[in-house]
Design a protein around this nucleic acid. Structure first.
Ligand SMILES: [Mn+2]
Ligand SMILES: [Mn+2]
Ligand SMILES: [Zn+2]
Ligand SMILES: [Zn+2]
Lengths: 133, 133
DNA sequence: TTCTAGTTGAGAAAGATTCTCAATTAGATA
DNA sequence: TATCTAATTGAGAATCTTTCTCAACTAGAA
């Protein structure tokens, strides 16, 4: 599947790209370039970053800023669009869906005459466990 | 005003902090540490970063990720909470308010039993000028 | 099988942010 | 007002993340 998905975006289906895309589909969690490289073995870190640029352009992955000082990447499954709740205390990351998000985004864009192509949204605070503690 | 605002947050009202806070209140636009330092003169870049940490903790400023590879900071005026529309083409940045945002954020937090303390939201795409061109 | 534009590895380079530590200072106290 | 001390700052080194360079390699077209 990764091979065809890559080619449908005009990307050569190299071994490295197929492996990275498959890995990200399996993980479906925000990961740093370094974390991904570790699980890939035999792929240069520079190549991970380069592939990530390609995937971002193709819309296959999203950039996620968890406020850790380095970028995280996550597979962009259009069927499971979501955002994140990030605990300031324990660092736990939960996925969350925002009701009526599509409508909200469309209305914001329409009002400003801005064609919204993508958006980034994260919530920071205290997860349920850390609130009680 | 900056002096009292600082002290109300348990921050010593040093010359550097007063100047930086005043500058950010005037600019009310996302700025990098370096851009701010340039306008301050006689303040070390390390100090700008340190003050930014203090201000972030106090909730006086927000971190803004415009996707430029470095962090921007913006004065957090509670009376003018807003987000940004960032043009992929020309880089223009527009402020935008999201209707019923407070309600949406509260409902997301309630549903997940997560105490949301802050959130980051940016929209990327094409501004009105770049759509026609 | 051949050809070539696109891709990759390895390490250097570039940038951004943090750290170290001696010198300075805000503001509490006498 | 003068003194004292913990907090803050400047300068540059250090660290960390991301990008760049360029020679070697390969996907996929012919
Ligand atoms: Mn997720
Ligand atoms: Mn703004
Ligand atoms: Zn937590
Ligand atoms: Zn534009």
């Amino acid at each position: 599947m990764p091979a065809q998905l890559l080619q449908s975006h005009q990307l050569k289906a190299t071994k490295q790209r197929r492996e990275l895309l498959l890995l990200m589909q399996r993980e479906h969690r925000p990961r740093t370039a370094e974390q991904l490289q570790t699980k890939l073995k035999d792929v240069s870190l520079a190549t991970v970053y380069r592939m990530m640029d390609d995937f971002l352009q193709a819309g296959l992955v999203n950039r996620v800023d968890l406020g850790h000082g380095h970028t995280h990447f996550e597979y962009a499954d259009p069927k499971h669009h979501h955002h994140h709740l990030i605990c300031d205390d324990c660092g736990r990351i939960e996925d969350v869906r925002v009701p009526n998000e599509t409508k909200i985004v469309l209305s914001v864009g329409r009002k400003a005459k801005f064609r919204v192509r993508r958006h980034a949204l994260e919530f920071f605070g205290l997860c349920s466990r850390c609130q009680t503690a």
